[in-house]
Design a protein around this nucleic acid. Structure first.
Lengths: 339, 339
DNA sequence: AGTGAAAATGTTAGCGCTGTCAGAACATTC
DNA sequence: GAATGTTCTGACAGCGCTAACATTTTCACT
């Protein structure tokens, strides 16, 4: 695993700087890490030497010697939808000033690959590991528990935290969406979702949505679940399909805003009046949905905030502070104009 | 930087496994890395020992010893728009099977922070560094050159590659968009963009677009450039503003699809006929734009593909293969129905 | 049984840095 | 001037692993 292509091999070490500056290695190390006391003049001399020879510290060696890295492992299910990049953005904003770096891995919603990624990231002895949701395979969970480092589970507040959980209740989101629609007088519901077996949080929302609808005595007429990841086009075609099978539906709950916006586009193209003929509700509160001619009725999830708080939690732990085990950041129902 | 909270301190080392399995450390190391020859029976014994005591390898030590890591540093300008997550997704798909991990950092379109991030990521002795665009501050560029490792510049094919560049010509994209609109008979153009001082590639597209328009003798009537990052809502309000000032414009070039979709929504809401009264053109070819009732006229950029090729290039280099210095992946003009 | 080559395993010496402790230099107090 | 403290600097060991070489075992083939 040695780098090729090197002229001026970047194998400069502390020793080279030390020689150049006429001090010992440890003094150079102290200057670089701004730790311990170094005379102002010495410091300057070392700084000069560093930039003169173009020394780049080797954090791998540093981390090994000090038994800790400033890497934060992040495991998210997908990058195909702006939701997780938003979380990542919040996290990044919180941690980068402190010099932490995110090592990102994607599971594509497969819990099996989560296990491998946890194992792999753990081997970098990160300062913390951030994982998505509270559902994990038993041995993955065990690994996380045993790892003995800060673990933050984001996006979900319905489960039992391994260490720290920051998220929202998807069960409640599904219930409140149903309650909202029932209060508006809708009675014949449909559901459109993407691959449910994998997106466990969408699945939870669907569960509580349908059970709330049924408990209220309204009818749950039918659903279409598309096989792949969520997207605007698949939401659009799924609604076409659903309406063909169940023309009498008066409100459709979509697994998220991408899908719901697709539904809105279908209605626009077919001249279906929203919300008089059909109500549409999404989930996430994407900016795009709110910019539609009729703002989308949806639930705004504080994704950036979740990522940001996760970052703050890691830092707080690092600084030896107490961090609450569970933070429910809540959500906001945006009434919009589509329901 | 030592982890807290640890029961069962994860300070298990190769030595512990070796003792448990009754072999030497190096044999355990060989089993873990699947390198060198180890008898089947020994291998099994080591595997058992590993899972029995719950050993997690320490890649920091491993990387130090073997002078190379399987980390790939990635520096992108933003996570606020699906474009870069798409690149990241392609990269991830290409590299994760080979065990490489992406360390992601975001510049927020500031070249100064790029310098700091390069320095910081370089200190992890990554296998490669992936940066966005070909514009860098001189000393950043120098650092990259001196680093002596694989450097991939993505998204842009207009500049001189430091090592490897994979992207497309934004200059050509601007020109072809203008040519397309001119061929369709549009004559009075407007431009709507987001913070140009920062997004250098959007800036380049705007330059060639306007110069092509002017060279053809058509008029460039006006533009609105919003201060923040691009988004659907700001595209929507920017178009309202532009049309107030220049009601006679017949075609608007947007800095990207997010902004353009906002423009479409404005027209929908105001009853402005597209494309008869106003033509709208975007850039990126987001799925959402193509799912609009009238598909957006835009340029499809192969973002996933760029990320994927970047990953393949890193792997090829790693395997000692030749990689072309510059790969222009091109783009596709999607005629759509909005122009 | 004897040979050589290949397979399997082990020994040794670091990778580049930081924690720890010790010592030198300098200032301050009695 | 001695005692004390404070700031600054350095020597040394070792973090956990792997490259390189050395050695032992295995085994096909004379």
């Amino acid at each position: 695993m040695r780098a090729r292509r090197g002229f001026r091999q970047s194998t400069l070490t502390l020793a080279d700087v030390a020689k150049e500056a006429g001090v010992s290695e440890i003094t150079v190390s102290r200057v670089i890490r701004a730790r311990g006391s170094v005379a102002e003049e010495t410091r300057r001399r070392v700084q000069t030497a560093i930039s003169k020879i173009g020394y780049v510290p080797n954090r791998i060696a540093g981390s090994l010697a000090s038994a800790g890295s400033d890497l934060i492992g992040v495991i998210i299910p997908s990058l195909g939808n702006i939701v997780f990049p938003d979380v990542l953005r919040g996290l990044h904003d919180a941690i980068s000033e402190r010099g932490f770096r995110a090592v990102v891995s994607v599971t594509d919603y497969r819990l099996e690959s989560e296990r491998e990624l946890v194992r792999s990231l753990l081997s970098w002895r990160p300062a913390a590991l951030i994982v998505t949701g509270c559902e994990h395979e038993p041995d993955t969970r065990q690994m996380l528990v045993n790892a003995g480092l800060t673990i933050v589970e984001v996006m979900d507040a319905d489960g039992e935290a391994i260490d720290i959980a920051i998220g929202m209740s998807h069960a409640r989101a599904g219930r409140e969406t149903a309650a909202f629609l029932l209060a508006r007088g809708y009675r014949r519901f449909g559901y459109i979702g993407h691959d449910l077996a994998r997106d466990l949080r969408a699945c939870k929302r669907r569960e509580t949505f349908t059970s709330t609808v049924r408990e209220a005595g309204a009818s749950f007429a039918g659903e279409v679940v598309t096989p792949g990841r969520s997207s605007v086009p698949s939401g659009r075609s799924a609604l076409a399909e659903l309406l063909t099978a169940h023309g009498d539906i008066d409100a459709v709950y979509f697994s998220n805003d991408d899908m719901a916006i697709g539904g809105v586009f279908h209605c626009m193209a077919e001249g279906i009046a929203i919300p008089d003929k059909l109500a549409i509700v999404g989930f996430n509160g994407l900016a795009m949905g709110q910019a539609l001619p009729q703002p989308l009725t949806t639930i705004l999830t504080p994704r950036f905030d979740i990522g940001f708080r996760a970052g703050l939690a890691v830092i707080a732990r690092f600084d030896g502070l107490e961090v609450p085990r569970l933070t429910d950041v809540g959500f906001t129902l945006l009434p919009g104009a589509t329901a």
